[in-house]
Design a binder for these strands. Structure first.
Length: 200
DNA sequence: CCCTGATTCGC
DNA sequence: GCGAATCAGG
């Protein structure tokens, strides 16, 4: 399989649309293994996986060395923090052809909904994050930095425009470390649960 | 069994 | 880097 810029681009699109790996594979005429393998290598955001493969491996028989004392060195590094798992509830079905367009959301840049209310933090909730489906609409109101096109390497996967339409593309800005989105779009993508209570 | 995605490892 | 084989959960 020759991964050209174009095929990679298509993979990204389909991936961010929330299609299953198998479905993406069908569309690109490759196997799901190829899809997930490439996606992994590209550093695309992981999908909600049904499994959590045991991080333990068949321990090497040579159990010795002086590694017997280390009791969890750096742990709690991640304060139960962010789990940017968008919920592609829409159309993970193999048979489903086109996934539904994500619900329109208000970008923080225009609505500023991300405001912690009163400091009545009787129970300081963990940094729970509620992933929000990247919506195409809000992105339309933003113009990506012109100079982002020159950069190489990791790029913000935030979809600009409606997937499948001619003008569709990705933000392309430099993402935050370990995040699929750039700073601006990460703000939109990751909304605190507290601040979503207006939606019910 | 079907599906899913993740990781491993020979190439 | 690639992806089939394999793993693992639903």
């Amino acid at each position: 399989m020759e991964w050209t810029e174009e095929t990679i681009s298509r993979l990204k699109e389909l991936w961010t649309e929330g299609l299953s790996t198998a479905e993406i594979g069908r569309r690109l005429s490759i196997t799901k293994n190829a899809v997930v393998g490439k996606a992994h290598r590209l550093g695309l955001p992981a999908r909600p996986s049904p499994i959590r493969r045991s991080e333990k491996k068949p321990v090497s028989a040579s159990a010795d060395d002086s590694t017997a004392d280390k009791t969890k060195t750096a742990k709690a590094a991640e304060p139960a923090a962010t789990q940017p798992r968008p919920e592609p509830k829409a159309a993970p079905r193999p048979a489903a052809a086109e996934p539904k367009a994500p619900k329109e959301i208000k970008p923080a840049s225009v609505a500023a909904p991300v405001q912690v209310a009163a400091p009545k933090a009787v129970k300081p909730e963990p940094v729970q994050r509620a992933p929000v489906r990247p919506a195409a609409k809000p992105a339309l109101s933003r113009i990506p930095d012109p100079d982002t096109k020159k950069r190489r390497g990791p790029s913000c996967c935030w979809p600009i425009g409606d997937p499948g339409t001619p003008g569709f593309h990705f933000c392309g800005a430099t993402p935050l470390p370990g995040k699929p989105y750039c700073g601006e779009h990460a703000q939109i993508a990751y909304v605190k649960l507290r601040d979503r209570r207006d939606s019910h």
